[in-house]
């Protein structure tokens, strides 16, 4: 049974196929923990045939519009619970 995930893209150029990239996905396994966040390394493909051992990845635009067809995703690594950068540009804010 393939697992299902969803991701939100900020820019379309993030949609790169067949090369390892880093992205945040949310686990769509039904139940209480649905939508748990994961930061992963993964390979994506728009055609599931090219990633036969991959899972299903639903893709949404930055503002949440669903792409009609899901892609395939093969998770190749775990990037940890959080991303190592600041949520704000502190220097810029302090300057203000």
């Amino acid at each position: 049974m393939k697992k299902e995930y969803v991701t939100w893209l900020v820019r379309d150029e993030q949609l790169m196929e067949e090369q390892e990239l880093e992205l945040t996905i949310r686990d769509l396994t039904p139940g209480r923990e649905k939508y748990t966040g994961l930061n992963v390394k993964a390979i994506l493909s728009s055609s599931p045939d090219k990633l036969p051992d991959g899972d299903i990845l639903w893709i949404r635009s930055g503002t949440g519009v669903l792409h009609p067809q899901p892609w395939a995703i093969k998770i190749t690594g775990d990037l940890g619970e959080f991303l190592s950068r600041s949520p704000f540009n502190y220097a810029d804010l302090l300057a203000k």
């Binding site: 966040g37 930055g62 503002t63 949440g64 959080f82 991303l83 950068r85 600041s86």
Partner: peptide
Amino acid sequence: VIPRVTQMEGP
């Protein structure tokens, strides 16, 4: 709040 880490939030 951990100042130097982040995570995708929203939309």
